[in-house]
Write a protein that binds this DNA or RNA. Structure first.
Lengths: 254, 254
DNA sequence: CAACTAATTATTAATTTTATAATTACTAAT
DNA sequence: ATTAGTAATTATAAAATTAATAATTAGTTG
């Protein structure tokens, strides 16, 4: 690269990656009722001291997994590495969604962070364990997250990530990742209700009337061509549906 | 990094960035009619020979601007640099959308490409000029693009980028980037028709009835609170509208 | 047999959409 | 002064969908 004396300029004091990881937890509380589903995210608790025994900045606080990007790696490389180091989680499909660079966001100085997000099935997170700079790692419901005294500007990052997750869930067929291949309408409904309380979804008569007609959903049929049914959530057999792979783009113009 | 003898393995022969850049050209053909707008993209013509005078692979063919990523830079760094080097264009907001790694896509060997896209106002591209590996640089209508004998797998990359551009235009208020701050409904209509021929947009009575009621569009008012009008496209004064900054997420579930 | 509950369907009024026709507000041409 | 043209706008009537709620069904359990 061209001659450039960085000592002559104010340069960033650090460059980091933060990875917001969401999942949907499903809890079957009643034998005959659909499971309760809630959006959760995985956070790590920062160790009180760093690797040299010195008091850690924002030590003890819950935070988004992440850490410093090394000069020889990209942001996403660092994100993948840090996530694995701090939580033991790997193989997630993460995406970049923003850069957080407000001066003052970190007491250590001018620290710029690249934020990533993923929403994954719970099975991807079962083997998590805190390590490296993390004293603990847990899944929190979004209500609980918002009641935490989070480190740095992580509340802002989480708010933005949440908006993206919600948009994706509502605008695309992302919900299918949290459903069995053949699902009931109430199961789909519960997944969607983890990110919205739109009455068109919350209302059984409205949703049950509309959903079977959506172009990307179809009845699951048995070998004889009859609609498949299940009694896993009710005494009355419920019809099973599946996504048919059609991608829909809903126009905002009508 | 850990000890690793890459000579023991088959490794990629190259790692590149390709940048699909779209714009919408607006041509006022009649004194009293809205302009014709068409989606275009900027392509470069590959030089016949490389910098050492040897015949260039796919020399003479039209292609997406781009080139090899250096080890000391990220894909997006390379994309920005190559775009500027080959076309003189800079300052665009580009986004990554895919990796093209099919073996055989490039006769030179196992070449992996990161694809980026941007859709920008024409004003961002007026100072383009071919340089570096590019013999020429031009804007092509999408019809013309699809009739070109493009280099490598660039037709596939372009097809995917186009789908993303269309989705963004239909799903979000991206159209506003191609309109004056205060626009007529027919101007908005023409922008949208560059990416779709949906009759709900193509039909004047339908579109003119619906558009004013959209939550993210409102009438432009003068100082006296009266609707602003223009005769730039018709003898009869047409109402002017503007986007009001509201972001809408249209649910695919109803 | 009655009661319960998730799933499903029905009902009716209100609203929107569909498909097209008609009108308006300006000109330009005669 | 009148007619014709055209982009923008509005009207019309039938069809379809939505809104809001009630009712019913299909299985159980007690």
């Amino acid at each position: 690269m061209k001659a450039y004396d960085s000592s002559k300029y104010v340069t960033p004091d650090g460059y980091t990656a933060d990875i917001t990881v969401f999942t949907i937890l499903s809890e079957k509380k009643e034998k005959k009722a659909p499971p309760e589903m809630t959006l959760h995210m995985m956070l790590i608790q920062r160790k009180e001291t760093d690797s040299e025994g010195n008091p850690n900045v924002e030590g003890g606080k819950w935070a988004i997994p992440g850490g410093f990007i090394h000069p020889d790696e990209t942001g996403i490389d660092a994100a993948v590495r840090e996530l694995n180091e701090e939580t033991g989680v790997a193989g997630l499909h993460i995406r970049h969604f923003g850069v957080y660079d407000k001066n003052g966001r970190d007491p250590r100085g001018w620290i710029i962070s690249n934020a990533f997000y993923a929403i994954v099935p719970e099975s991807s997170l079962v083997n998590r364990r805190a390590a490296d700079d993390a004293a603990d790692v847990k899944l929190f419901s979004m209500d609980d997250v918002m009641n935490l005294d989070l480190a740095f500007d992580h509340r802002d990052i989480i708010t933005d990530a949440l908006a993206i997750i919600r948009t994706e869930m509502i605008r695309t067929t992302t919900a299918k990742n949290f459903l069995p291949e053949e699902f009931t309408l109430s199961e789909l409904q519960r997944v969607l209700l983890t990110v919205t309380n739109d009455p068109k979804i919350a209302s059984d008569p409205v949703f049950f009337a509309k959903a079977p007609k959506l172009p990307f959903i179809e009845l699951a049929l048995d070998a004889a061509g009859q609609p498949k049914k299940t009694t896993r959530h009710s005494y009355r057999p419920s019809r099973l549906y599946k996504f048919n792979g059609i991608d829909v783009i809903e126009s905002i113009y009508g």
